[in-house]
Every structure is written in C-alpha cells, then in structure tokens.
C-alpha cells in the first residue's frame, strides 16, 4: 500500500497531477479573492466589513490559510523539482532550437518564470497587506481594522501599482497555460471539449488577472 503511495508521489505523472490539482485549487482561491476585492469598488465600509467578517470566522480562517499554504508549498516544491529535472534531461543544449509554431507557446515556455514572479509577489503581497500598516476604524459602532486605508495608501504609489499589474500579467500567462494543461494532465482530452477548455482557460486568465489589475488601477486613479 505504502509502496503504491510513494510510487505515485515520486513518479513523473503522479507529481504533475499533484501540481495540476494544487494549481486548480489555487485558481479557485483566486476567484474567491477577486470577488472579495470587488468590494473595493463599492467603498471603504464595504471592503472593511467584508474583511472583518472574513477574519472573524476564527479557526476556519486558520484552516483555510493552512490549506492554501500547503497547496502553494506543494505546487512550488514539486514544480521546482520538475523544472530542474527537465533542464537536466536535455543534457547538452541545442545550438539552434526553434519552435514549430504548432506547439510551445510563450505562455507554456515561461511557466517557471511567471511562477517565480508570482512567488515573489505573494510574499510581498502578504507582507504589504496582511502584515502591512495597521489602522483602525469604526463602522456602525463596530471597531475593526481599516484595511481599506492600507490598500489605498499602497496603490497611491505608481510603482506599487505598476508592479501589481506586472504580477497580474504573469498570473494571466501562468493560468492561461496552467488551467487547460491541468485537464490534460488528469487525462481529459476530447476533440470537442479540449478546445473549449483552452478558451475557458484564457477567459479565466483574462477575467481573474484583469479583475485584480482593474481594482488596483481603479484605486490608484481614485487615490491620486
């Protein structure tokens, strides 16, 4: 039994299925996160109440955070190992290697790099917001953290906004390949559905990354 488990977790197919599974899990998280961010369009109270409600879920928050951290760590760790293996599998580099134009895309070729940008972004993102400047406010007699002010102050800087938008472009590229790729990895491949899934993946990438970027630009313009 344990041999079957260890075989799966160390095999090329087992590992990439885990990368695919955690990747799709993180894709789901991004949607939830984005929907929450849309309250920033409404105003300070809406966003602060949303953030306060979310954080007052208590132990559920810690469970969700631990789950996300585990998914992210697994995704990152396995992807790094896979990328190193893939680089060494070539051995001597080609003097000339050209794409056929029918396979590899800019999105698929840059997965390790866009992934790395997202990793750096994530660390900074948590430091800048969750562990960023703490202000307090009162909404309808309830005291809560004024996370809205933290966010608005951050996006007043054009550099911060530009970095955020660049990171979201990386997210778009990463998920545009990753989303549809995950299904192939699980073994879903169908003449009719696969092309539709690829379109859905691009739509997802544009919606999510575009949504986050739109919020950041909105706040920058509003705050400036």
């Amino acid at each position: 039994m344990s041999s079957a488990v260890s075989r799966y977790f160390t095999s090329s197919i087992g590992r990439k299925q885990l990368i695919a599974l955690t990747g799709l899990g993180l894709c789901g998280f991004l949607v939830a996160h984005l929907l929450g961010n849309f309250t920033l369009f409404i105003g300070s109270d809406a966003f602060n109440i949303y953030a306060h409600k979310l954080m007052s879920l208590g132990p559920l928050v810690y469970i969700a955070e631990a789950g996300l951290a585990a998914m992210f760590a697994l995704h990152l760790g396995l992807a790094i190992k896979m990328t190193i293996e893939n680089k060494t599998a070539r051995g001597q580099k080609y003097y000339m290697k050209t794409r056929t134009g029918r396979g590899e895309t800019l999105m698929s070729a840059t997965m390790p790099y866009t992934g790395l940008i997202l990793f750096v972004f994530l660390i900074l993102h948590i430091l800048q917001f969750k562990f960023g400047p703490v202000y307090n406010t009162e909404v309808d007699g309830v005291f809560m953290r004024d996370l809205y002010r933290t966010v608005v102050e951050y996006f007043q800087s054009p550099l911060n906004t530009a970095w955020y938008v660049i990171a979201m472009a990386a997210a778009a590229m990463h998920t545009a390949h990753g989303f549809q790729s995950a299904f192939q990895t699980f073994g879903f491949n169908h003449g009719t559905w696969t092309p539709k899934l690829k379109i859905l993946g691009i739509a997802y990438a544009v919606f999510v990354a575009g949504g986050f970027a739109a919020v950041s630009i909105f706040l920058h313009v509003k705050g400036a």
């Binding site: 090329s12 197919i13 590992r15 990439k16 299925q17 896979m82 293996e85 893939n86 060494t88 599998a89 070539r90 794409r99 056929t100 134009g101 029918r102 396979g103 590899e104 895309t105 698929s108 070729a109 997965m111 390949h177 790729s181 192939q184 990895t185 699980f186 073994g187 879903f188 491949n189 169908h190 003449g191």
Partner: peptide, 28 residues
C-alpha cells in the same frame, strides 16, 4: 532520466507520424 511532460505539445507538432496528445492523456 527523460524529462517531465508540461504539455507544450512540441512533440505532437514534430511527430512524423502525427501522433497526438490524446495518447498522452490516455496514458495519464
């Protein structure tokens, strides 16, 4: 020590027998 598939599809594009990625999916 072959590498891992990351679904680039360059293989499918250059296969002289035009074997498709659906066979990789079946293997998965």
């Amino acid at each position: 020590l072959f590498g891992n598939c990351t679904n680039h599809a360059e293989c499918e594009a250059t296969c002289p027998k035009e074997i498709g990625l659906e066979h990789i999916a079946r293997m998965n």
